[in-house]
Amino acid sequence: MGKRIESYRDLMVWQAAMVLAEDCYRVTKGFPKDEIYGMTSQMRRSAVSIAANIAEGYGRENRGSFVQF
């Protein structure tokens, strides 16, 4: 049997979302400086939002709420 899930940090999907966010920051670092408040910011916020939504959903009281997030 697999490892017991004790936290949202144990979820493979959350771990993958964190890798995506890190990759997004690394890639957007090379974007033009005039995009820092435009496309760069939007891409970074959306990438971080994925992991945050997974963590928030994990903390919900039932599976339906978790799946919704």
Results as ranks from 00 to 15, higher is better:
Tyr58Val: 08
Asp10Met: 08
Met12His: 09
Ser7Ile: 14
Asn53Lys: 02
Tyr8Arg: 11
Asn53Gly: 00
Ile54Ser: 03
Met39Phe: 07
Glu6Arg: 15
Arg9Met: 13
Met39Trp: 00
Gln68Met: 01
Ala21Asn: 04
Gln42Ala: 12
Thr28Asn: 09
Ser49Gln: 05
Val19Met: 07
Ile54Thr: 01
Ser49Asp: 10
Glu56Leu: 05
Arg4Gln: 15
Gln15Phe: 11
Lys29Asp: 13
Tyr8Cys: 13
Gln68Asp: 04
Gly64Lys: 12
Ala51Asn: 00
Tyr25Ala: 09
Val27Gly: 07
Ile5Asn: 13
Ser49Cys: 10
Gly38Cys: 08
Ala51Met: 04
Asp10Lys: 13
Tyr37Leu: 14
Tyr8Asn: 12
Lys3Ala: 14
Val27Met: 14
Asp23Arg: 09
Gly64Val: 07
Val27Cys: 09
Asp10Pro: 11
Cys24Phe: 05
Gly59Tyr: 02
Met39Asp: 08
Arg45Lys: 14
Ile54His: 07
Gly30Leu: 15
Thr40Asp: 02
Gln42Pro: 02
Met39Pro: 06
Thr28Trp: 00
Pro32Trp: 10
Gln15Arg: 06
Arg44Ala: 07
Ala55Trp: 05
Ser65Gln: 12
Ala52Gln: 02
Gly38Val: 08
Phe69Thr: 05
Met12Asn: 11
Ser65Pro: 04
Gln68Ile: 05
Tyr58Pro: 05
Ile5Lys: 13
Asn53Thr: 01
Glu22His: 08
Ala17Ser: 06
Lys3Ile: 14
Ser7His: 15
Gly2Val: 14
Asp23Thr: 03
Lys33Ala: 06
Ile54Tyr: 01
Tyr58Gly: 09
Trp14Pro: 04
Met39Ala: 12
Lys29Trp: 07
Ala47Ser: 12
Lys3Phe: 10
Asp10Ile: 13
Tyr58Ile: 08
Ala47Cys: 02
Cys24Gly: 01
Gly38Pro: 00
Lys33Asn: 10
Arg45Pro: 07
Asp34Cys: 07
Leu20Phe: 03
Arg4Asp: 15
Met12Ser: 11
Lys33Asp: 09
